[in-house]
């Protein structure tokens, strides 16, 4: 008997956790459908959508650009150290362009935007929830999903591919700088090798990933903020959850999408 009770306890706890997980996933999926529907259904708020495009796209440019630049640079440097042992230095341009376009630009841009945008969306919407501004909006016949959430999710999904495309160029440029000025490659050959090797699919797969990541970041920011608990603590927890859950989902979906594209 004294053995069965603890086992039952563990089962009960596991079961409760599992049920909770299912209910959260269910609510999140419903939230996502609701958000997607309200992106398509009028009324639209073009001014708010424009603001979000600027906030998410333009203001993230510096962070994403710097991340891409240094990632490209360090990639060239590291692969040189490795490849020089096998006299395969000529592969550096290929490694840089493939790594950047397929993986590093979308994933790193996604994670940086999760920190910058996901957190700010969760804090803003969470504060609005806690101070009853969302309820006030509803009583004034404005649907908060259309007014607050749809513009953010739309802007995130459309702007992240643009950011990642720019990050692709900057990242490759970072590799080029190190290749030419530190490792003494011929600039013409470096560009030639990059251009010869990169395929449309490499870039496109990265941009599709970026759109998915943009959706994830803004959705998690909105979801956590919208369901924020009470008080400053509630908003703090919402912000943390938004960033952590978006980051983990980005890494999981990155694997799934890579598997879909390249296997």
């Amino acid at each position: 008997m004294f053995l069965i009770d603890p086992i039952l306890n563990v089962c009960e706890r596991l079961g409760r956790r599992l049920l909770m997980l299912f209910s959260i996933v269910g609510r999140l999926v419903m939230f996502a459908f609701h958000a997607l529907r309200d992106v398509l259904v009028p009324p639209y708020y073009p001014k708010l959508i424009g603001q979000q495009f600027i906030n998410i796209g333009y203001y993230s440019l510096t962070v994403v650009g710097l991340t891409a630049l240094f990632s490209g640079m360090v990639l060239a440097l590291q692969s040189y150290t490795g490849f020089a042992r096998f006299n395969a230095e000529s592969a550096i341009a290929n490694v840089v362009v493939l790594s950047i376009t397929r993986e590093l630009a979308p994933v790193l841009a996604g994670l940086m935007v999760a920190g910058r945008i996901g957190a700010s969306i969760a804090a803003e919407i969470g504060t609005m929830r806690v101070t009853e501004q969302i309820d006030a909006m509803t009583t004034l016949s404005v649907n908060p999903f259309q007014y607050l959430i749809a513009p953010r999710v739309l802007a995130g999904t459309l702007m992240l591919p643009v950011l990642v495309f720019i990050a692709d160029i900057i990242g490759v440029f970072g590799g080029f700088i190190v290749g030419v000025y530190v490792l003494d490659f011929n600039p013409y050959t470096y560009i030639q090798q990059t251009w010869d090797f990169v395929q449309a699919m490499d870039v496109i797969s990265g941009l599709v990933k970026a759109a998915v990541f943009g959706f994830i970041v803004t959705l998690m920011g909105c979801y956590c903020g919208y369901n924020s608990g009470r008080g400053a603590q509630g908003v703090g927890a919402a912000t943390t959850n938004a960033v952590v859950s978006a980051s983990i989902l980005i890494l999981i979906f990155n694997y799934i999408l890579t598997q879909v594209f390249f296997s």
Binding site: T131, E132, Q133, D135, A136, T138, T139, L140, S141
Partner: peptide
Amino acid sequence: LKKFGMLFQGGAL
């Protein structure tokens, strides 16, 4: 909801 107006506790501006 157009029939209603509400004054929220904290103002909710």
